[in-house]
Design a protein around this nucleic acid. Structure first.
Lengths: 227, 227
DNA sequence: ACCTGAACACCGTTCAAGT
DNA sequence: ACCTGAACACCGTTCAAGT
């Protein structure tokens, strides 16, 4: 007597060519934005696409290749400055574009974090920054140092903002403020009495991601471009 | 007839109290430095300690708690500046301490990346930076903004250096240089002819992690401290 | 209190097979 | 060529049990 299998999956075999790299990357980004890095799973990705787990492997060699492609696609979305305006303004515009991208896709930044930057899209952004820095009057070698510094600061600020937002979810805002205040109150009050009153400002600075980034970027550009 | 079990584990039951949080964290850091984030596994950690997998759970609630504790321990290792010297020099000394820590423990930085900063040790570093910035003449609110910017830049630079080193392992250096050169050569040669010759300098800047960091830090401090 | 192995619900990926 | 499920070697963690 033959036993009928549990037939647990009501999903029918999907028509051919329903899948392509673009659809897969779209689903990956959606998953990342909606549920975070830990939710980006080959099984979850396939389910999001309504397809068997292994179908994805026909288009990408594995999870690492998908992650690289996601990063490349997102970096490609950064809009290069229009070209009008002073070099300094265009630099700010471009850096803000990078910052905004990572703020909108925090999980992508987290993924980028563990992998080298492979793609040509990233090189396009770097090129543009270099051009603008040279246009602003820097010598080639100084421009290269400045470009790296701008990217480093932008990535660090994005990461900080992402982590900050994540912390807010976990810990009540009052909790953080209280901890900082307590810590500051422990300082010898005769040396820096002003510090004890700084907790609100600290919390504010950590909250205002974008304004904080713009202030730091302005300072960095001041230091880099000053002749 | 009783079947003797395969007896696959020659490890004897370990004496009591061989384990404590400190030993566990030491093993975790060793594992991280030696084999990277992906190798930090509850099973691997227990093996490193010569103990059954579940023994660790008597001292930490789970992997997340261990990661937080590792971060806290490492941040505690940052040496605060001695206190002599101009505020600006002390700021550089302190920031370099943070940078050095993350350069020596790249995996720790990667772990820190996905989690909010919880520990008191981090607050100690932040405190010191704030004191020095106020000592350097900044108003409290400006000091707070500057402190966040310094941390953001330092984290970004560390991350960049870590990723750079990882990329070197994967990709031949010549490969990267060639890709950048090709990309730069594609630019319209009449607009920025100097860019095509910049590839060597780009590669150099990416390689010299610490010197690059110091240059960027100096520029940022110039911008932040200028009255 | 501290340490143990077995078991559970996951994960990425290999494989042989279907269409 | 493209999609499939079963199977393999992992993972963190729960659990009941030993000492």
């Amino acid at each position: 007597m033959t036993v009928t299998p549990p037939a647990r999956s009501p999903r029918r075999r999907v028509p051919r060519n329903t899948l392509n790299p673009d659809r897969i990357l779209g689903a990956a980004v959606a998953l990342l934005d909606r549920r975070g890095t830990e939710a980006l799973t080959m099984r979850a990705l396939a389910q999001e696409l309504g397809v068997g787990t292994m179908a994805v492997y026909s288009h990408f060699k594995g999870k690492d290749e998908i992650i690289d492609a996601v990063n490349e696609r997102l970096i490609g979305e950064i809009e290069l400055p229009s070209g009008s305006g002073a070099p300094r303004e265009q630099l700010i515009e471009l850096c803000l574009g990078v910052y905004r991208l990572f703020s909108e896709h925090p999980s992508a930044l987290q993924l980028l974090t563990s992998r080298p930057l492979r793609g040509d899209e990233a090189v396009a952004v770097i090129d543009r920054m270099l051009c603008l820095l040279i246009e602003a009057g820097l010598e080639p070698s100084a421009a290269v140092r400045a470009q790296v510094a701008l990217m480093q600061y932008t990535i660090g600020a994005s990461l900080w903002a992402v982590r900050r937002r994540r912390a807010e979810c976990g810990e009540a805002e009052a909790g953080l403020q209280e901890r900082i205040r307590r810590r500051l109150a422990d300082l010898p009050p005769d040396s820096y009495p002003s510090l004890a009153g700084l907790a609100p400002e600290l919390v504010t600075a950590q909250q205002s991601g974008r304004a904080q980034y713009e202030a730091g970027l302005a300072a960095l550009l001041d230091g880099l471009l000053r002749t």
